[in-house]
Computed example of a mutant assay.
Amino acid sequence: MSSILKIVQPSGILDGVSSNKLRREVIDIVENGANIVLVDFQDVTFINSAALGALVSMLKLVRSAGAELFLCSLTEQVNIMFNLTKMNRVFKTFASRDEFEQKVRGEVRSQDSAV
């Protein structure tokens, strides 16, 4: 069975409300058959602790469904938050979509989505 990749690209401020919307979208994606989800943070300008909690919840739900969650293109502010909170040890992150493609993707059908 081939892998199905879905890419989600949130933008702006990722706080409690927007991260819960993102979490629901990712869960819907997995429930609809995607087994690899890539969240591209290149347009995220700020992330707070509520968003980090929602991301951890999202990761647990994705893993429990037998799927994988990857993050890429963390902006400077997001990267600082991930390092300070040690989330960089919890999530599989890549510098860019290109790096993700080279190291993980392989033969995966891509379907892009914007949040």
Rank of each mutant, 00 (worst) to 15 (best):
V39G: 01
P10F: 01
Q9P: 08
A65W: 13
S2D: 15
T45Y: 10
Q102K: 15
G53Q: 07
V90Y: 04
A95V: 02
V26W: 00
V104S: 10
L74F: 03
C72M: 07
G106K: 15
K92M: 00
V39M: 03
P10E: 08
A54M: 06
F41Q: 02
R109G: 05
A65R: 15
D43F: 08
N79E: 10
K60F: 13
S113Y: 10
A95Q: 03
L71V: 01
E68K: 05
R105D: 03
E25Y: 13
K86E: 09
F91R: 01
Q42H: 08
D98M: 11
N32W: 06
R89T: 05
I29F: 13
S19L: 03
A67M: 13
S64V: 09
R23L: 01
A50R: 09
G66W: 13
V78L: 04
L52V: 06
R63K: 15
N32Q: 11
T45M: 00
R89I: 00
F100H: 10
V62S: 04
D43M: 07
D40C: 09
R63Q: 15
A114Y: 13
A65L: 13
E76Y: 14
Q9Y: 04
I13R: 14
L5V: 07
N79A: 07
F94S: 02
S96L: 00
Q9H: 09
I47C: 07
I29M: 14
V8S: 06
E99Y: 08
Q42P: 02
E76C: 10
